[in-house]
Amino acid sequence: MRQPNFWYFDQPNLLAKLLYPLSIIFSLVGRISLFFVKPWKASVPVICIGNLVVGGAGKTPTAIALATVLKSKGWKPHFLTRGYGGTTTDPLLVNIQKHSSDIVGDESLLLAEICPTWVSSNRTKSAKLAIEKGANILILDDGFQNAGIQKDLSILVIDGEVGFGNKYLLPAGPLRENIAKGLKRSNAALILGNDTKMIADHILDFTGRKFPILFGSIEPKNIQPQFFEKKFVAFSGIGRPKKFFDTLDKIGLDIIGTFAFDDHHPYSSEDLVKLSTYANRHGAELITTSKDRRRINTNINVAIHELPIYIKWKKTSELDKFFDYLEGKSFVTKA
C-alpha cells in the first residue's frame, strides 16, 4: 500500500479529522485484543526492533546491525520475522539458495544473509524452534505490537525526517498505537537521520523521564567507482521510496528518472521490461535497493544494480549499556 501524503503533514488535515472516529475504533480493538494474549517467556533474551508507525523506518537494517554486534560479542542470534509479502505461515528456516520472496518475503532474505532466520505468523513457534537449533538470543524484526512473546529489550526505530507524522492512529494517520503508551512499553528509541521533527524533545515530553535515545543514519556501502560514470533510472517499492532517491542524490549519482512503487511491490516481468525500456531509451541503467532486489524473482535478462546500506551509529555508549544489561541477566551463557 502506498502511504497517503496527509499522514505526514505536521498537523492533521480535514481528511484525517474525518477519519479520526475510525482511529478510535482501531485503538479500542487493539486494546481489547491484548486481554486475550498471555505472553510466552523465552529461556533466552528477546530483543524487539519495532516502531510506532507503519512503513519503513529502518527496522531491518537496524536488526542486522545489532545482530552483527552481538555476533562479534560471542552471541548466537536468530531472527524472527513474519515474512511480510510471503505466503508461508508455518515456521520455516529461510534458505536463501532455495526460497524466494514470494514464499518468505523480501526482508527475510536480507536477514538470512547475516543469521539464521525464521519466518512464521506465529513467532512463538518460531522462537521455540530457533532455541532448539542453538539460538541463545532472539531478534524480532518488527513485532513490537505483537504481544505473543515477552520482550527483554524493545528498541523503537524512528525516521528522523517524518517522525510520528500527524500523530493520528490508523487510518487517519500512520500510528499503529498511541505514542505515550508505546514509549512506555519500550526501552529505547533509535532516531535515524536528521532529527528535523525534534523527535527527541517530543519523546522526553511524552515520557516525562530520562529515556535512552540512540542516534544513527542509514548510509550506503560498497559504492562501485564506475557508478559515478553512469546514468541511472532508480526504482523502489519500500515504505518511503523518496528516502532511497534522496540517498542517490546525496552521494552524487546521475539519476535521470525515478519510479516509486507500493511497499513490498511484487515486480512482474512487465514492470521490469517497462523500466528497462525507459532506461535504455535514455542511455541509463537500473538501480534499486537491496530489499527491492530480493523481490525480483523473474529470469528476465535485465541488468539491475543495487545499493546496499548499513546503520552508522552516532554514539554507541547507550547501546553498550543494553548489551551489558543483557549479559547480566540470568539467561543461558553465550558459549
Rank of each mutant, 00 (worst) to 15 (best):
K73F: 05
I309M: 01
P21H: 09
K334F: 08
A234E: 12
L92P: 11
T207L: 09
I311D: 03
G105I: 10
A188Q: 04
L326I: 12
L253T: 06
Q226C: 11
V94E: 05
G328W: 15
L15H: 01
L169T: 04
L204P: 05
K334D: 09
A200K: 08
S27G: 08
L190G: 00
K314D: 09
N166M: 09
T60I: 06
D205G: 03
N136Y: 01
A63E: 14
S126H: 01
I213H: 07
L19Q: 06
V104F: 11
I24A: 04
S217Y: 04
N178T: 15
I158T: 12
I114R: 07
S43L: 14
L275H: 08
V157K: 06
N146V: 06
T196F: 13
N194G: 09
G56F: 04
P61L: 00
G83C: 00
L169Y: 00
S126D: 00
F228H: 12
F331T: 02
T68P: 14
G163Q: 05
G182D: 00
W118D: 14
P174L: 14
I287S: 14
H202I: 02
D246H: 09
P171R: 01
Y20A: 14
S154F: 08
K59V: 10
R294I: 00
T88P: 08
R185P: 11
L286W: 07
G55N: 11
E132S: 10
D152E: 15
K242P: 07
K151E: 07
E177V: 08
F259D: 02
N122E: 02
F235W: 00
V94S: 12
I223V: 06
T68Y: 15
N51L: 10
K76Q: 09
I179H: 11
L214V: 13
A42D: 02
R82W: 04
L19W: 06
L272S: 07
G208K: 14
I131W: 13
F323M: 08
E306Q: 07
V29L: 11
Y84V: 12
N222P: 01
L140R: 07
E327W: 07
V157D: 03
D205P: 01
F244C: 06
Y84L: 12
A127I: 07
K41M: 11
G85I: 11
L14K: 01
K250G: 04
L14W: 09
I309G: 02
V233N: 02
M198N: 14
D249C: 00
H305Q: 13
N136F: 01
F235V: 01
I179Q: 10
G134W: 10
R295P: 03
G208A: 06
A42R: 13
P4D: 08
R281E: 15
I25D: 00
T333W: 12
F79G: 08
K334C: 05
S126E: 01
L129T: 02
G193W: 15
D159C: 10
G148K: 14
K315W: 01
R295H: 00
G134F: 11
G30V: 13
R209P: 00
L52S: 04
I311Q: 05
S121Q: 13
S126N: 02
K184F: 07
V53K: 02
G30Q: 09
K41R: 15
K133S: 10
I158E: 05
I114V: 12
A65F: 07
S186I: 04
P220L: 02
D254I: 04
I203E: 01
S101K: 07
